[in-house]
Nucleic acid binder design. Sequence first.
DNA 1: AAAAGTCCGTTGCATTTGCAACAAAAAGAG
DNA 2: CTCTTTTTGTTGCAAATGCAACGGACTTTT
Lengths: 223, 223
Amino acid sequence: MKKYIDVIKKSPLFRGVKDENILDMLQCFQGINAIYERNSFILEAGETTSKMGLLLTGKVYIIKEDFWGNRNIMMEILPGDIFGEVYGIIKDEPLGNSVMAAEKSQVLFLEIEKLMTMCTESCRFHNLIIKNLLNVMAEKTLLMTQKMEHMSKRTIRDKLISYLSEQSIKNGNQEFEIPFGRQQLADYLAIDRSSMSRELCNMKKEGLLEFYKNRFILYNENV
Amino acid sequence: MKKYIDVIKKSPLFRGVKDENILDMLQCFQGINAIYERNSFILEAGETTSKMGLLLTGKVYIIKEDFWGNRNIMMEILPGDIFGEVYGIIKDEPLGNSVMAAEKSQVLFLEIEKLMTMCTESCRFHNLIIKNLLNVMAEKTLLMTQKMEHMSKRTIRDKLISYLSEQSIKNGNQEFEIPFGRQQLADYLAIDRSSMSRELCNMKKEGLLEFYKNRFILYNENV
DNA sequence: AAAAGTCCGTTGCATTTGCAACAAAAAGAG
DNA sequence: CTCTTTTTGTTGCAAATGCAACGGACTTTT
């Protein structure tokens, strides 16, 4: 386990915990190691779990299959990331997604209940871990809220306006760079890339904005 | 404050805490009461806050204004609900939304930092509160994940399939009732009601499903 | 029972969108 | 520099969608 300390201490969950305390904590959280071969299921939709996973090595997909059998990759989990925390926290909630090893992967399972409950000895870093967990979840909520807000607009133009407005505000400037290429942006907003490209150019023609590569400038209508 | 104990103890955050302990805890969390008149801002986009709000009476809207000034109601907060917890947890993150009183409202502000950190006396219920907070956030994440999954489909048909599949699985039956009327479902999936109605009927004609009011039955293609 | 209101399906139509295919531009590789 | 790969813009077109308007079924109110 010691060889994975590097991944663990860089994970958002253990951020700030000193090396010498990590091993103790893992014991406290009843950490269990498991290795999964490529394409094997780590968790299956419908199951319940009281543990969350922390990926040590490899790569893991969160996948979703619908009633008619169509499969869809929802998320990619990389070393240091955690998964399944929601289902560990909400007891008895059956998983809505399956978790599959995209390649040979090593997973550290942690007992969420232990993690959420102050141990009687009140190890010095337990507080930190709980805060870290809350932070991870809050960040996730934040990102999802923002994304949903954009996606809930009815037209491509409104989705773009919503997204670009946010970026502008975030940068405190009507000129800014976005962290996506065109295809990625289209995926993020759940729209077709070429249609998006078309709409961006329409908006440019109408004088709403300008862009070059990933740099955008928004204009007020009355200028 | 005592007159609000009923709302507080029914809120998801204080669920399970005994009456006689609530007042103590409020002190521990540095609870501050504030009253807002209709249409006044409780929090404004761009600010930062270290507190979360718990609505005691009235009604509050989470609203969003874009670069061009269009205003949009994102969420409705009712008594017992909490808001701003994400921004309280992630320090220094400026609010992406504003919070406005939809009617005269009384709000209890709680210091998130106090709430997240075990007090030295380790009051008996502090653990419970933290778990409750994690639960609230996990539930929120869960609901958002599901919604996003449906919304990210490209066509109305695929959105419906995604949503109805989930409902079918959740009920463990290919016949089930949904908790939405048509207009609500359309809002939830961020699509036009009449277009959705049209697509539902197309699917019915093709033998994919049947429905009467809010009751649906899904069929496999090969039956 | 009549009236008013709500919910839902239906339809025509202009617009938007996804899709596919291609062109142009930019970035990397050798 | 040339060739290859990746990214981005362009366009035609069929299909999907939003929008508005209408009417029937069902509920609630008076």
